[in-house]
Amino acid sequence: MTGSSSRTLKTILFLGYAFLYIPLLVIVFFSFNKARLMTTWTGFSLKWYQELLSDTVMLRATWTSFRIAAISATIAVVLGTLAAVAIVRFQRFRGKTLFTGLVTAPLVMPDIVTGLSLLLLFVAIQHLTGWPQSRGVMTVIIAHTTLAIAYVTAVVQVRLAEFDRSLEEAALDLGASPLKVFFVITLPLIAPAVATGWLFAFALSLDDVVIASFVAGPGATTLPMVIFSSLRLGISPEINALTTILILFLSFGVSIAAITIRKTRR
């Protein structure tokens, strides 16, 4: 690569990062603005943070969202790991093609279709059996779990396919029961992938607004739903403050991860 073209490429990369980061940094900057509008800087103030932290609707929605995300991620990890074991380890079983298709299909389905179809299911079940009496946290958990299984399976599948199976074989030869082999050998080996899958599922649930809007009942307004309805009205200083807090948490998490990685490498 010649010098000038390499310089051009570096400039493009830099501009790409600028495109990714400047919009977020602008929001962080204006979250400390006194005025409601983002056209001019009128002075430093923390009042929007105060307002955010005393917004009970927002706080309640945050709690609901975290609960839904944690529960659905946990169920999805169990189901997704089972699905990955079935796909990678079981040679052939009836309906395997349909099974692999079902596992990957939610990845390519638009959210709006997933949400609509699940709502139709819940409505029909309710019409026939009376359950669920009202859509709420439960239905959102089911919807998010279904979506997240696909991601968990994809991550765990890769890890299951690549690790050394002789350890499992040795344990089996030494007389361990298959269940014990799974919990003592297999699970610790795939644990990083399972953890990644859980985090992925958690983040997916926290990020979803479309599916939740379809299947959530009146009692289960999630944080993204609250944010979405406030975004419909345009610029909101409270959301600026929320963004800043989110970015703060994120950078905190990333720095901790970076430090641990550096320490373990040494």
Partner: peptide
Amino acid sequence: WTSFLIRVYAWIALLSPTGV
């Protein structure tokens, strides 16, 4: 890793008539 809605909001903040 920030929220999807936040990333969309960033452009509302930049582009809207009373935006940056």
